[in-house]
């Protein structure tokens, strides 16, 4: 379904599609500019992994050599959305993006973290923790201080998820089929009535929710996104929260 919509968009979209490609997600620290040594990457990685264990919040770091003319905020949102950082339904993901050539840095905050990691706080983390260190050329220290501050802002907000990474699954393939048949029957009786009702009230009906998989994330049934590596997003969404800065 989603691919279909994407395809339709591909061919009809009047908005020019961005050129800069989002790298596939393999680990929490993606360094495309070779800014960090492997040891430093591993250090950040384990820090972030431990944090995710404790808080279920996913924070990732992306370092790119250049934005290639794209708007920082657009690319950042695209990367965070594509990676689906954060747990589905909680949207507790965040991305720290560094664009080397443009000397820009951005913290992109998932919907669920916005109350804790506010725009103002993100901005302060950038201005006070990251930028001063970057200006001295201490990139690792800046990133480390940045994610430490981000974790500090989040800590205590989310209890660890016990059923983490387990998308609800149907026990048998027959059940969806059965549901579908039932629902088709249901639909044929109710279709006209429910549509006129919905038009008036704006409420979602059971069958719509079933179709959409929840009101806010239509068509994205988590899963489907499992790269062979050690890390993948949990299905979180992003609404453009966060802050940008430059050094």
């Amino acid at each position: 379904m989603r691919t279909l919509v994407t395809l339709i968009l591909l061919f009809t979209s009047s908005v020019p599609l961005a050129a800069l490609e989002v790298p596939s997600l393999r680990s929490r620290v993606t360094d495309q500019a070779d800014l960090l040594s492997p040891e430093q990457e591993a250090q950040l990685e384990s820090k972030l992994a431990e944090f995710e264990q404790q808080e279920s919040t996913q924070i990732a770091v992306l370092i790119i050599p250049s934005l290639e003319g794209e708007v920082l905020e657009d690319f950042s949102h695209r990367a965070a959305s594509q990676w689906q950082l954060g747990q589905k339904g909680r949207d507790n993901g965040a991305l720290l993006l560094v664009a080397l050539q443009e000397r820009r840095v951005r913290i992109e905050v998932g919907y669920g973290l916005e109350p804790k990691l506010t725009d103002a706080l993100s901005r302060r983390i950038i201005d006070q923790e990251i930028v001063p260190r970057f200006q001295q050329g201490n990139f690792f220290e800046g990133i480390d201080a940045g994610i430490t501050a981000m974790m500090g802002a989040v800590r205590g907000t989310y209890a660890p998820l016990s059923t983490r990474d387990k998308a609800p699954q149907f026990p048998s393939p027959l059940i969806p089929l059965f549901l579908f048949l039932l629902w088709s029957l249901f639909w044929s009786r109710r279709s006209r009535r429910s549509r006129s009702l919905r038009r008036r009230s704006g409420h979602l009906h059971a069958e719509d929710v079933w179709m959409m998989g929840g009101p806010r994330y239509p068509g994205s049934f988590g899963g489907g996104f499992r790269s062979g590596g050690g890390f993948s997003g949990g299905g979180g969404s992003f609404g453009g929260g966060g802050a940008s800065g430059r050094w």
């Binding site: 905020e73 949102h77 103002a120």
Partner: peptide, 16 residues
């Protein structure tokens, strides 16, 4: 400064 960063964040949300 806080208001300004909120405003910037909101402009970005509007774009999104």
């Amino acid at each position: 400064l806080e208001l300004q960063s909120q405003l910037e964040g909101t402009e970005n949300r509007i774009a999104v």
